[in-house]
Write a protein that binds this DNA or RNA. Sequence first.
DNA 1: TCGCTTTTGATATTTTTTTATCGATTATTA
DNA 2: TAATAATCGATAAAAAAATATCAAAAGCGA
Lengths: 208, 208
Amino acid sequence: MADAISKATMLRFPAYLRYLKTEAGRGNKYISSAVIAEAMGLSAVAVRKDLAGISSQPGKPGSGFEVSELIADIERRLGFRSRTNAAVVGAGRLGRAMLAYDGFEAYGIHVVAAFDVSPVVIGAADGKPIYPMERIFEVVRREDIRVGILTVSRENAQAATDDMIKAGIGAILSFVPAYVHVPDGVLIRYEDLAASLAGVCGGLLLSE
Amino acid sequence: MADAISKATMLRFPAYLRYLKTEAGRGNKYISSAVIAEAMGLSAVAVRKDLAGISSQPGKPGSGFEVSELIADIERRLGFRSRTNAAVVGAGRLGRAMLAYDGFEAYGIHVVAAFDVSPVVIGAADGKPIYPMERIFEVVRREDIRVGILTVSRENAQAATDDMIKAGIGAILSFVPAYVHVPDGVLIRYEDLAASLAGVCGGLLLSE
DNA sequence: TCGCTTTTGATATTTTTTTATCGATTATTA
DNA sequence: TAATAATCGATAAAAAAATATCAAAAGCGA
């Protein structure tokens, strides 16, 4: 690849994308790094440096960057142009909330189904099917599901993860407050809601 | 203060805490940096450096760190020993899931109430009251609520945030996919579920 | 057209974070 | 008790990221 983009920058791209889409929705055609920085709490220099890595069209002095170009560039870089199917594993309250959440679509992610061991929640929610856990192997293959959202209980986390991987899922976003073991080649990221909130509380004491 | 602890380390502490509590639950009294590193996907050196900043007792060569000491140290540093009250604003699906989520207790955070503009959800869920939005001013004061969890729709985000701040909330964790403006002194952190998931998808292509 | 303002992009600098190395200390075992 | 293995803490080096500076290009108004 041309110029390696830093990991930190990569992590910021989804946030840029969200902001830029908001601006596009307001009808703004051009936007300057200073405006983006102000809105997102970054420095203008940082924004320019981040954008320099992916913008196909350079920003124009005097007016700034073309919003639609930037959106296209970021989406292309992040691979959002291609559809990715996802599934929720664990159809509890949080899992069903994820199943209903419509924000994923903007990133080209389609949550197409959920799975749960407990028979009481089998059925459908928001027009999306909830399957019994044992059907995960068949459904993942049929629906070409690549990503899993793990929202089971702590006790079931490892077993559910094993099944997901065995079914062919290669990337997992886990909301379970426990570490699970995954083989090499499987990507797992932990989203610890409690820790995030705790971080906010703790942040009250810090400067940032 | 003695030695400034890096921001990156601070962000890792909640994860350490979670892991250490798991180990404590298994009855392990001592743990080595190598074991922690292996479980959490870090290097042993990094773990030792992080822990050096907060451990009141130094780790003992040959056996490692005392788990209960570490937990106490981290909790003390993060201020989890004192109770913090929180409230959910926006009692939709995600909001009610947050209201019911019991993982916050482990960090000394107590979600005591929710607020919503829509009358249909006013009432109570999981033994916790859901108030109409206009009562936020009174309830926040009475219950000494310090932190807010924002789960309203994009359209209502700014108005809800303004009310939260006016009511006296100084720290917000927002799940709304839009940036809102807050005055200086108010801490807001965005938790973008879609972006997180997108990051996992994108991460499939990267090396990490 | 001309000067002024805005805004970029490149380079350089500083800060932060990660990683490596190594002697010293403690447990373990024979 | 003595040798061996495990583990730490401190220091140093390397890598990554954030921040500052500034000349040049593009718009804007007179």
